[in-house]
Design a protein around this nucleic acid. Structure first.
Lengths: 157, 157
DNA sequence: TATTGTTATACTCTATAACTATA
DNA sequence: TATAGTTATAGAGTATAACAATA
C-alpha cells in the first residue's frame, strides 16, 4: 500500500487517545519523583515483589550489564529498600530481597503504576459500558514492561 | 473517598489501553534509532519545522540549561540537520534553522511520530464508529509534548 | 545592569574490561 | 572452563559557574 494512504479516522481516534498516554507518562514520573527513584531503580524494585531475585536475572530482564545492576542494587541498599543475601545453593549468587520499607514502597508504587491515568474516567463516563464492551474484545501483547530500562546511544558526529 | 475504592471497570479498560501505550512508546524509540537521534535531539529538531528558532527558546521549551542547548545544536550541526545563523535584529542571538536534510528528516519523523500505534487498527476494527463517537466527545489537554526532555535526579544515598 | 550564548568543569548514567570467587 | 558479582575506568548526558559580547 502507498505511504500516502493514511487512515484519517484512525488518526482522529489516536489524537484523542494520545493525551491519555501523556497523562499516564506524567503520572508515572510523578510517582517516581515522589519516591526519589529513577526508572531503572523502579523497574528493579518492582521485580522483587514476588520474592528474592538473583542479580543476574535483574540484568537479563533489564537488558543491561551486570556491573550496572551492582550500582542499582547499591543504591537500593543505600535507600534502605533492598538487601543482598548470599544464595544457599550457589555461593557465587546473591539474591536481592525487599526490606520491610522496600515492600511497603513497592506495594504503593505497584498500585499507583497500575492505576488508570487521570482523564480516563472522563473518557469512560461518555459511554463506559459500550467502550468496555469494545475494548473487552481486544487482545494485545501485555508481556512488556511499561517502563523498561532504555539504553543510550551516541548521537554520532 | 477512601483509597481502597478502586474502580474495577476503569482498571479493566485501562488494562486494555496500556498495551497501546507501550506499542506507541516502542514505535517512537524505533523511529529515533532509525534516525540516530536521542529524545532531546528529536525534540529540538521537531521545534524547527515551522522556521528558525532562537536557542534561548529551545532551552525554555525543553526546560533545560542553555549550555545543554549548545551541546544539542552542536550535535545537530555535526549530523548535518541544522545550522546556526546570527539574528539580524539582535546580535547576541543565534537562530537555528533546518538544513534541507534536516527538513526532510524532521518531516519524516513528524509523520511517523504522529501515526497511531500498531494495534489501534485492531482495536478500532471491533467497532470503530462507536468508539470514534465516544472518543469524539472527549476533551483533554493536548498542549504537552509526547516526548519532552526529562531531567535526571540523583537516587540519593 | 541584564541577557544570549559558549567554555570549563563536575556529577550522574551506563557500558567494557579485568578481576575474584565459585562452580 | 564457564559463570556471578565487583571494581576500575571511560564515554555520553546534563547542570552549574564563570565568561564575552551585546543590549
Amino acid at each position: 500500500m502507498a505511504s500516502s494512504a493514511r487512515d484519517s479516522s484512525l488518526d482522529q481516534i489516536w489524537s484523542k487517545l494520545q493525551p491519555l498516554f501523556i497523562a499516564k507518562r506524567n503520572q508515572v514520573f510523578a510517582v517516581m519523583n515522589e519516591h526519589g527513584l529513577t526508572p531503572p531503580h523502579m523497574q528493579a524494585l518492582t521485580m522483587l515483589v514476588d520474592g528474592p531475585v538473583r542479580m543476574r536475572d535483574i540484568a537479563d530482564v533489564m537488558v543491561c550489564d551486570a556491573s550496572y545492576v551492582t550500582a542499582i542494587v547499591d543504591n537500593l541498599e543505600h535507600l534502605g529498600l533492598a538487601i543482598r543475601r548470599p544464595s544457599s545453593v550457589d555461593r557465587r549468587v546473591k539474591e536481592i530481597a525487599l526490606t520491610p520499607l522496600g515492600e511497603q514502597t513497592a506495594a504503593q508504587i505497584g498500585i499507583e503504576m497500575s492505576a488508570p491515568p487521570p482523564g480516563l474516567e472522563q473518557l469512560c463516563h461518555a459511554d463506559r459500558a459500550t467502550l468496555a464492551r469494545i475494548l473487552g474484545r481486544l487482545e494485545l501483547d501485555e508481556t512488556q514492561s511499561l517502563w523498561p530500562h532504555i539504553g543510550r546511544r551516541a548521537p554520532g558526529r
